[in-house]
């Protein structure tokens, strides 16, 4: 099986041909990252090696997404000043500012 990987993305897959949007820059905690327009923010973050999307309310435990289909609410982040955005569903756009929520 001959998949090829580059910068967190699968660039060659034995079955699937990925149709990606154009490359865009976005901000995570102030740092500039690259992702593809239209993919969920959580996907772009994961490809950039960022799995910790928040720290939990009581014990400040690191949390990532769990279901990736908008059911579990484990991926809530602040996007362009909006709170509680489910980043597993929210499409990435050029220049978005993504932050871990402060509670």
């Amino acid at each position: 099986m001959s998949a090829r990987i580059s910068k967190g993305y699968i660039t060659h897959h034995p079955i699937i041909e990925f149709k990606r949007g154009k490359k865009v820059k976005f901000f995570f905690e102030g740092q500039v990252l690259e992702g593809y327009e239209g993919e969920p923010i959580a996907a772009a973050l994961h490809a950039n090696g960022i799995k910790v999307l928040s720290y939990s309310v009581r014990y400040q435990r690191p949390r990532g997404f769990f279901c990736a289909v908008g059911k579990c609410a484990s991926c809530l982040m602040e996007v362009d000043g909006r709170e509680n955005v489910m980043v597993c569903m929210e499409p990435l756009r050029e220049g978005m500012r993504v932050r871990r929520q402060r509670r």
Partner: peptide, 9 residues
């Protein structure tokens, strides 16, 4: 822990 994901995810 981040990295524990549902199979569907």
């Amino acid at each position: 822990l981040p990295g524990v994901y549902g199979a569907g995810a």
